[in-house]
């Protein structure tokens, strides 16, 4: 592969997957800065050690997930993430009035808190499932078997429903 081809290829991959990866990471961590750092690191590793036999998108998500986990540990932010940090959730959409904005922020806060009460693996499998990954790809990312991914998704759905269903109407 020539330099220009390589550059084109990596740039294309970046344009294709960066936004989706960033969105997933923000949902996973509730921290936009951490999400941006992890997404960048995943693409850097893609250049340094490209996957030989795995789908690039799944590989990027798996690497970024591991980066987030390791970084969170390193920053001692791990406990914060596990115990919930709804205040850190990205706030606000443009174009809303003050009341709407406040209401949206409240809803997000509740969802964020419910997500943060899931275990790291449960949150990861749930969010990766939402991104459309197959169970075997999710299993690679979280380091488990394909069979147990179904169990974790079921548990995550049950927990989330237990947290949010009582307030479901108010969330709509």
């Amino acid at each position: 592969m020539t330099q220009s081809e390589e550059r084109l290829n990596v740039t294309q991959l970046f344009l294709q997957h960066y936004d989706g990866l960033y969105r997933y990471l923000v949902r996973l961590t509730g921290d936009a800065d951490l999400a941006a750092d992890a997404a960048q690191e995943a693409f850097v590793r893609l250049v340094e050690r490209p996957p030989q036999d795995r789908h690039v998108r799944a590989w990027l998500f798996a690497v970024a997930t591991n980066v987030v986990r390791d970084t969170a540990r390193a920053r001692a932010r791990w406990m914060t993430l596990l115990m919930g940090s709804p205040d850190r959730a990205p706030m606000g959409d443009a174009g809303q009035g003050p009341d709407d904005a406040a209401e949206s922020a409240e809803r997000r806060k509740v969802v964020r808190a419910a997500l943060d009460r899931l275990s790291w693996k449960e949150r990861t499998v749930l969010l990766m499932r939402e991104e459309g990954f197959a169970h075997h790809e999710i299993a690679d990312a979280v380091g488990t078997t394909t069979g147990s991914v179904g169990t974790m998704i079921a548990r995550a759905l049950n927990k989330l429903a237990g947290e949010l269903a009582p307030t479901s109407e108010s969330l709509r």
């Binding site: 969105r23 959730a89 606000g92 997000r108 969802v111 759905l157 429903a161 949010l164 969330l171 709509r172």
Partner: peptide
Amino acid sequence: LAKEWLDLLPAE
């Protein structure tokens, strides 16, 4: 429902 709830999170 989970999809709806997750969509509440900002897709910034």
